[in-house]
């Protein structure tokens, strides 16, 4: 019995760890989509964040500067997207795709000589000695710093949309940019800021991968997490609380193969590796069966370029 509890505790711990990058990217993308902008470039921004964070930490030996640089890189990438999609009004789907393809190439290019280099990443911290609490101790109090940061960001975004005035402005801009402009709200600036927040979060998620989750750099190491996060936003019907739930649910999906192997079954790791992607499709199907629900929650101007009226 004692052993089982231990296993459960480890499972919950790993679930949160694996769900953290998804949570960060999905929170960023949700803010971005709430302002009416669909940025499919998450995967590219994440990889750029991962490589920038890794190289900086490797060169300076300071993980925090690495994280900062990763977020800055995410923001820079998002500005590239913003310039083409918001200022030049190009098709958001195509621009996002371009950002992903570009990010995959550029990150691999920059990081070529860093593949396989060792680094000492973020270590788990035992908060107030509570990590030995049965079952939930390790999950809540035995994580590394970036996981705690993700908790704080989650609460911040929750507060932002629930109680703050800027949160209301973002929603107004996403629902009806023309009405928002008519009452004097800065539509373009709001969208830029939302896109930049998305970039910062994707960069942070990238840094989490290369500095905490698996402290190393490998080409394409985000392995589709940026895309899963996009599905997650739909899954959560653009609601902050459900993003958290969804991220950890998908985190659990991705470590299922460890559980199955731990239970003594012999299944090919490649087949089990498909689980998160299959789960994403299944979830998407269930959600899209009810189009009314999606229409009800999705920001009305999502993906549509905004032309200023004069």
């Amino acid at each position: 019995m004692d052993f089982d509890l231990n296993m459960l505790s480890n499972l919950l711990y790993a679930m949160v760890r694996t769900g953290t990058p998804l949570l960060l990217v999905a929170l960023g993308e949700m803010v971005c989509e709430k302002s009416g902008v669909l940025n499919l470039g998450q995967e590219g921004m994440m990889l750029m964040g991962a490589v920038a964070g890794f190289i900086t930490a490797y060169a300076t030996g300071n993980l925090f500067i690495g994280v900062l640089l990763a977020m800055l890189m995410g923001i820079l990438m998002s500005l590239l997207f913003g310039f083409i999609a918001i200022t030049l009004n190009a098709n958001q789907v195509a621009t996002g795709l371009a950002l992903t393809i570009f990010g995959i190439g550029l990150s691999a290019f920059i990081g070529a000589s860093y593949v396989g280099q060792p680094i000492k990443g973020f270590e788990p911290i035992n908060v107030a000695g509570l990590s030995d609490t049965p079952i939930i101790g390790k999950m809540l109090f035995g994580q590394d710093l970036l996981v705690y940061l993700s908790f704080i960001i989650f609460l911040g975004v929750y507060w932002f949309f629930r109680w703050s005035r800027p949160g209301l402005i973002v929603k107004a801009v996403g629902e009806n940019p023309h009405a928002a402009e008519a009452v004097g709200l800065p539509v373009i600036r709001t969208r830029y800021l939302a896109v930049m927040f998305g970039g910062a979060m994707a960069g942070l998620a990238g840094a989490y991968l290369s500095l905490a989750y698996t402290p190393m750099w490998a080409e394409n190491m985000s392995a589709g997490r940026g895309w899963i996060a996009l599905a997650l936003v739909v899954f959560a019907s653009w609601q902050t609380g459900r993003i958290l739930l969804g991220a950890y649910l998908f985190g659990l999906m991705s470590i299922l193969h460890l559980v199955v192997q731990g239970l003594g079954f012999n299944v090919s790791p490649n087949l089990l590796g498909s689980m998160p992607y299959i789960a994403t499709i299944v979830v998407l199907v269930f959600l899209s069966m009810n189009q009314k629900r999606i229409k009800l929650y999705a920001p009305i101007s999502l993906g549509k370029p905004f032309h200023r009226s004069r």
Binding site: N91, T95, F102, G103, G105, L106, A108, E219
Partner: peptide, 19 residues
């Protein structure tokens, strides 16, 4: 040169095209 140069050029091409 690094192998990733190819995909870097590909991404750049698409970006310039969209712009």
């Amino acid at each position: 040169t690094p192998a990733a140069l190819t995909s870097l050029f590909q991404g750049m091409l698409l970006f310039y095209l969209l712009a």
